[in-house]
Structures are given as C-alpha cells and as structure tokens.
Amino acid sequence: MITVGRFCWAGFIILQAITLKSYPAELSLTALICLAGTIEGSIVPVAMEAGNAAVWSVHLDVKLLAAVYSGVVCSG
C-alpha cells in the first residue's frame, strides 16, 4: 500500500505540473484541489457510516486530541 500510495502521489505531482502549464493560477488550483479533497473526504465517510450515527458524536478524549494535533501539525 505504501508503494501504491507513493506512485499515486508522484502521478498527482506530475498531473499538477501539467495542469499548471495551461492554468497558471497556482492559488486557485490549490483551492480547487482542497475543495475536491474536502468533498471526497465528506462523501466517503457518510457512505461508509450511514447507519451508525454514534460515530459522528464528538467526545473530549484522546481521539479528538489526536485529530486536532494532526490537523494543526500537518497544516503547519
């Protein structure tokens, strides 16, 4: 899975470089990529956890701390 992930990431970088040649607005392209990731990241969990409403409740525990920490560190 790591190898497949690395090949997909390399393909994404190559595709992004090709796209930037014809669409030179880097910030707009970044926003569109983030929007597409947000939409995909929302549809997949909703489809996977459709019948289990308990997974969407927020609890003050280590899982919430890990999610916040990874979001801050990965975004930084």
Rank of each mutant, 00 (worst) to 15 (best):
L15S: 11
S57N: 11
V62F: 07
K21Y: 14
R6V: 15
V72W: 09
G76H: 07
T38R: 08
C74E: 09
A36V: 07
V46C: 10
G37W: 01
V55I: 13
A54T: 08
P45R: 00
R6T: 14
L27Y: 13
F12H: 07
F7V: 10
G5I: 00
H59I: 03
V62G: 03
S70A: 09
V68D: 00
A67M: 10
N52E: 08
A31W: 04
K63M: 09
S22Q: 11
H59M: 06
R6M: 13
Q16S: 15
L35N: 02
V55T: 10
V4F: 14
G71Y: 02
I2P: 04
V44Y: 06
M1D: 14
P45M: 01
G71H: 01
A47T: 06
I43C: 03
F12W: 09
V68C: 06
I2D: 11
R6Y: 13
A66G: 00
M1F: 13
V55C: 03
A36Q: 02
I39G: 01
C34V: 12
G37Y: 04
G51D: 03
G5R: 01
T38M: 14
Y69A: 15
G11C: 05
G71N: 07
L27H: 15
S70G: 04
E40D: 09
V55D: 01
L35V: 05
G71M: 05
C34T: 09
G51E: 00
L15K: 05
L32Q: 14
A47S: 06
L32R: 08
F12P: 00
Y23N: 13
C8Y: 08
G41W: 04
C74R: 07
E49I: 08
I14M: 05
T30N: 15
E49P: 03
G37D: 02
M48I: 14
S28K: 14
M1N: 12
I18T: 10
C34S: 12
A67Y: 08
